[in-house]
Computed example of a mutant assay.
Amino acid sequence: MRIAVTGGFGYVGAHLVARLRAAGHEVVVLSLLPPAEDLPARVADVEWVAADVSAPATYAGALDGCDALVHAAAMGAGPATADPAGAFRVNGYGTRAVLDAAVAAGVRRAVYFSTYHVYGKETGTITEKTPTRPFSDYGITKLAGEGAFYRAARREDIEPFILRFSNGFGAPLSREADCWSLAFPSFARSAAETGRIKLLSAGMQQRDFLTVGDMCAAVEIVLEAPAPRAGDTDIAYNVGGGASLSMREAASMVAEAYGEIRGEPAAIDLPEGTEDAPAEPAVDYRFERIAKLGYAPAGDLAVEALATLKFLRVRPKR
């Protein structure tokens, strides 16, 4: 299968490109920026088109001959807050533009990297039937991108899938990966640099986490899944890890992984007076729909924490 991947040199996209190529697929990456110098060759030497998804002229013809499109390029949560108009241009219009180009090129299947942020709900039970009421600029603009896929679902010449991921984590393939503001990677970098992890709150808020490997597995599943019925707009699938963790538990996992390497865990610094903060409600991020297609989270967050610390060159004491 020839597969176009937007954002294929990014944090998750690079892992996906490596995995698809290992499975024997032919991959073309559409990316605004070239591959980072430290990306491994199994990603960096892929066919690359310098493309801005919101400027269709930059990728004219790039999707010709492709069987599938995986649209992972996006403006993330922090940048979207700083530049909401830019986020609408990239996450909203850019998604519509690249999907329209895929339809015009005869691409048969399209997969969209969406997010649990479209729900605007972070605790309790979340299913695909939970109302989408985003409150962040990131969630709002990613939901706008979903709209392009729902519109495409009414056509008969493309098979769209929306994957609403929870919080992905895995060892990056490049130091330039846009991941260091995320919970697990930021904890790992702090531990690697200082031997300490500083929490800015009590850290009792709960989130669902999954590994980057499980994210890639979900993409592979929907690339091979039976086609939706023509006109069927029930195309969104939650993809989670199946475990609710507090930020404090995530920090502890990284601290313990640090201890496996250095002999003693990283220290965790809490704001004064928060040591005995009560537990907050858990999140139950349901993914039964994609489980019926064969998805089952198999990754280990503790293993990824250890791998991230090693990537950051944490070494045993001498």
Rank of each mutant, 00 (worst) to 15 (best):
D208P: 02
L293D: 04
D269Y: 10
R318A: 13
Y258F: 14
S246A: 13
I290H: 01
M1D: 08
V12W: 01
G273V: 12
E272W: 07
F169G: 14
P79N: 10
M1K: 14
V303E: 15
M253K: 04
E260M: 12
A202Q: 07
G203I: 00
V5C: 03
T130K: 07
A148H: 09
E275T: 12
R151H: 13
L306M: 10
I197N: 00
L99E: 05
E280Q: 15
E264G: 11
A104H: 03
A14E: 04
Q206P: 03
V53D: 01
A153F: 00
A85V: 12
T211F: 04
Y116R: 12
A277K: 07
L312E: 11
V5W: 00
A243K: 14
D137G: 05
S166D: 10
V70D: 03
Y119A: 01
A218V: 07
Y258A: 08
L199K: 07
L199I: 09
A4K: 02
V49P: 09
V5A: 12
E47I: 08
R89E: 14
K121G: 05
F187C: 05
V219S: 02
L173I: 04
P160L: 08
E37C: 06
A298T: 14
K198L: 14
T233N: 05
A80P: 00
R164A: 10
W48I: 03
A14Q: 06
V12M: 14
A282P: 04
A192I: 05
R133C: 08
N167H: 14
A14G: 00
A23C: 12
A217L: 13
P56C: 06
D276L: 13
P228H: 09
M253E: 10
A192L: 08
G120M: 04
P297E: 05
D45S: 13
K129M: 15
A307P: 09
L16W: 00
S190L: 03
G263F: 01
R313D: 14
Q206H: 09
H25M: 12
A282W: 02
G106I: 05
A152I: 04
R21P: 02
G13Q: 05
A218R: 01
S136Q: 00
S114Y: 05
A101I: 01
A18P: 02
A250F: 06
Y138N: 02
G294H: 02
M247T: 06
V70Q: 01
A177V: 03
E304S: 06
I162F: 06
S54T: 09
P271N: 09
D208A: 06
A230R: 11
S31Q: 04
G294K: 06
I3A: 01
A305I: 13
